[in-house]
Simulated assay, not measured.
Amino acid sequence: MEIKLRFFQSPKFSLQKVSTAAFLVLLPISLMALIFFVVYPGDIRLQSLSAPPSNCLPSSLANVSSSEADLRILLGVLTVAEAYQRRDLIRRAYLLQQPLLSASRVDVRFILCRLTTEEQRTFVAMEIMLYGDVIILDCAENVNEGKTYDYLSSLPRILDAGGRWPPYDYVVKTDDDTYYLIDKLSETLRGLPRVDVYLGMRVPCWSTGSESGFMSGMGYALSWDLVEWVAASEVARQKRLGPEDIMVGVWLNEGGRGKNRINMMPRMYDYPGGPETCFRHGFIPDSVAVHKLKDNLKWAKTLQYFNVTRRLKKSKLYFID
């Protein structure tokens, strides 16, 4: 306040004097900042890296907006609330695939049933605040007692299409022990009709019938019209209990739906180990999905095979042999 009073009351005030004084004060400060930047550039860079980002991870794998995407896929990962570490691993594994996508939009969502403990309510709420990638259904947690039905049948009601309908061209149901090669999945789905499509690894894998059997629960894709049909189907509602992958096949078989059945064998398969079969064999470069990644080591070996860390830049900050 004293400076302001003197500024207006002094008849001999000179802007030139103020400019000169300011220059004399700022000059040494500027020189010190320049010297620090030249001598300690790494410290400045490290401080900028340590600042928390406003949004740690995107809730979708997309280089384009939903309205610009020529293909929109919802990848629903059925999991349980306590699998915090597994969800974190899956988020990172899929986020690293983002540069491989061009005109596709893939939204990865973790599908849970009702939370039952204080720990779950707190930790899952934190995940939602940070990532926005969790869907919590109004059901008791289960595997074969209707969770897949609740997931598929709820989507037309709960999804916001943002002015564009349908919100997705395809919906995928998968589990947290399956790893998808998102670019390969997108390339495959882009060439399909997008109507009455049921894609996955056919079971039994030696079946040749075009409208029989079912797709393995490791992961399967339904075109959006089939998702809407499931939501309205009395067949699906009455037969929602039982092995979920078998029951989806039953719905479609009895309803005369899913006539465009795409068998992705051998590009979808179980993790290598034991005698090779039609559903279990070694890694192949053109894979779409690998199943039965039951522990971190199997995830690591799978991610290593597909060279997920190939874009890791060299740095003095770390040494990875």
Rank of each mutant, 00 (worst) to 15 (best):
R6A: 11
T20Q: 14
T20E: 15
A21K: 08
F23N: 12
M32A: 13
F36A: 15
P52T: 02
P52I: 05
P53A: 00
C56V: 10
P58H: 04
P58I: 06
S60M: 09
L61E: 08
E68T: 02
I73L: 07
V77Q: 09
L78S: 10
A83F: 14
A83C: 06
D88K: 10
L89N: 06
R92Y: 09
Q97F: 01
L101P: 02
S102D: 14
A103L: 09
D107G: 01
D107M: 07
V108F: 01
I111E: 06
I111S: 01
T117F: 10
A125W: 08
L130Y: 10
V134Y: 07
C139Y: 05
Y149Q: 03
L152W: 07
L159A: 03
W165V: 14
V171P: 03
T174H: 00
T178G: 06
Y180N: 05
Y180I: 10
I182M: 06
K184Y: 10
S186N: 02
T188R: 01
L192H: 04
V195D: 11
D196L: 05
R202P: 03
V203Y: 02
G209Q: 14
M215C: 09
M215K: 02
M215Q: 06
S216D: 11
M218V: 13
G219W: 00
Y220M: 05
Y220A: 00
A232D: 08
V235I: 15
K239G: 09
K239R: 15
R240D: 06
R240Y: 12
G242E: 12
I246F: 13
G249Y: 02
G249P: 06
G255A: 04
R261D: 02
M268S: 08
Y269S: 08
G273C: 09
P275D: 15
P275V: 14
C278M: 09
H281S: 12
I284C: 03
V288N: 00
V288M: 14
A289W: 11
H291P: 13
Q304R: 15
Y305H: 14
V308S: 05
R311D: 08
L312V: 14
K313W: 06
K314T: 12
K314I: 15
K316A: 15
